[in-house]
Amino acid sequence: MLRLRVPDGQARRRARPRPRRRAGAQRPRTRRHHAHRPGRARPGTRRRPARPGPRRRAAPAARRRPARAAGRRRQHHPRRGVRRGVGYGIGIKNVGFSEGFDDYSTARVRLEVVGGEPVAVVHTAAAEVGQGLVTIQAQIVRTELGVEQVTVATADTTVGSAGSSSASRQTYVTGGAVKAACEAVRAAVLRRAGRDDVTLRGGRLVTEGGEVVADLVDVLGDRPIEETVEWRHKPTHPLDPRTGQGDAHVQYAFAAHRATVDVDVELGLVRVVEIATAQDVGRALHPQSVRGQIAGGTAQGLGLAVMEEIQVVDGLIRNPSFTDYLIPTILDVPPMHIDVLELGDPSAPYGLRGVGEPPTISSTPAIVAAIRAATGLALNRVPVRPEHLTGT
């Protein structure tokens, strides 16, 4: 069984050699020459970023993770037909709508006194689909207005559009709209108080030195303040039809994965033993949700790599239920080690980056690369099925 970490040359000589690869099989390697470097023009544009990009920082972070599963699992392989492989995958994903699309969201924030304390209500049309957007909206309002009681109204389009919950964009775009609406409310509060040298904190107007100027309840009285803001990120532009160049995307997200697999080459069975991943999230507004998104996206990539496939025969779907269309369960997901990199985007609200989709891009190729490393086979499709490994 190959070791993942070889301490010296003697141990390296003792390790079993890699299996011989078939003719034409591509040697697994991390394609570092494709990585985004500092000052390098972004894909699809000749424009260089205002600040250095991640430049391979996600990939080294994933590679530096100790491969704990390597030694621990060796004793469970009494059969010589089981081989271990390690593979890497690196992904880049645009965030938001692109190529000049008018990408915006609308938010309404109302600040009033209820039961003797300041209460904020935030209303958008953004769809919560499990990504944690309701929590983020309330978190932004608490941060910007300094109040504890926040109600997130049921999403609907009476307030305006928020666009779709796709393209890893809602925290960026709707979060930006909520932040802008809160800033408008705060400005109105300060105008009413006749002060421009204070901030809102703990339900009070407070100076930088911590001096309490007034209670927010007294400033509001029985006159609520409500602001509605339609917010847009910086503009994008269509690609030039002749050159294929252009400033088409507002932001990129970066992720890297390392996968360790055990492959029974006689039965064609694959078990993903461990996954390590690193992702640049800009700034983690809610760290627990961020890690959950990364873990969930990685699990989806695992499903694509070795399990999920719609079977179509003569135009008919043969596995139309989750009895036959298999998705990963908690028993299929291996130990997962996540490094969250916070390399803020200066043009985004709070420096954040979209998080949800990037893990699905690099996790699948990492797992397939690990299977290639274990078997020496030039696998070129997913999911990898037993017959692809046994040749039957």
Score class of each variant (00 low, 15 high):
Met1Arg: 15
Val152Cys: 13
Gly87Tyr: 08
Val134Tyr: 03
Leu2Gln: 13
Asn94Asp: 12
Pro7Thr: 09
Arg195Thr: 03
Ile317Leu: 02
Tyr325Leu: 15
Asp196Phe: 04
Val368Ser: 10
Ala58Met: 14
Ala214Cys: 09
Arg291Gln: 14
Gln300Gly: 04
Gly96Val: 06
Pro346Ile: 02
His249Arg: 10
Pro17Cys: 06
Val229Cys: 09
Met336Cys: 12
Val189Glu: 11
Ala125Met: 08
Ile294Tyr: 01
Arg16Met: 13
Leu331Ser: 10
Gly194Glu: 15
Ile136Trp: 08
Val185Thr: 11
Ala69Trp: 06
Gln311Phe: 08
Arg48Phe: 01
Ala284Gln: 10
Ala61Lys: 07
Leu326Lys: 12
Gly209Lys: 07
Gly356His: 00
Val134Asp: 06
Val219Ser: 02
Glu183Trp: 03
Glu309Pro: 00
Arg42Asn: 05
Pro7Lys: 14
Asp332Leu: 03
Tyr325Asp: 10
Asp197Arg: 07
Ser165Glu: 06
Tyr350Trp: 13
His249Leu: 12
Ser168His: 10
Leu220Cys: 09
Gln10Phe: 12
Arg169Trp: 13
Arg55Asn: 13
Arg353Gly: 06
Glu128Arg: 00
Arg110Trp: 11
Val114Pro: 00
Arg18Gln: 15
Pro43Phe: 11
Ser161Phe: 02
Ala162Ile: 01
Thr392Met: 03
Ala214Gly: 05
Ala25Asp: 06
Ala59Asn: 08
Ala366Asn: 09
Arg14Cys: 09
Thr171Ala: 15
Gly297Ala: 12
Arg192Ile: 05
Pro349Trp: 00
Arg16Cys: 06
Val82Cys: 03
Arg12Ile: 03
Gly296Asp: 04
Ala15Arg: 06
Glu211Val: 12
Val119Phe: 01
Gln170Gly: 07
Gln293Tyr: 03
Leu341Cys: 03
Pro241Leu: 06
Thr329Ser: 11
Thr323Val: 11
Ala11Asn: 07
Gly303Lys: 13
Ala15Trp: 03
Gln300Thr: 07
Gln311Asp: 15
Ser289Trp: 10
Asp280Leu: 01
Ile90Pro: 00
Gly202Asp: 15
Val141Tyr: 13
Arg65Ile: 15
Val206Ile: 10
Val250Trp: 02
Ile338Cys: 04
Gln131Arg: 07
Thr360Glu: 05
Arg283Glu: 09
Gly85Phe: 03
Tyr172Pro: 04
Ser321Thr: 14
Pro346Met: 02
Gly53Asn: 08
Arg232Ile: 00
Asp332His: 03
Gly315Arg: 13
Ile275His: 05
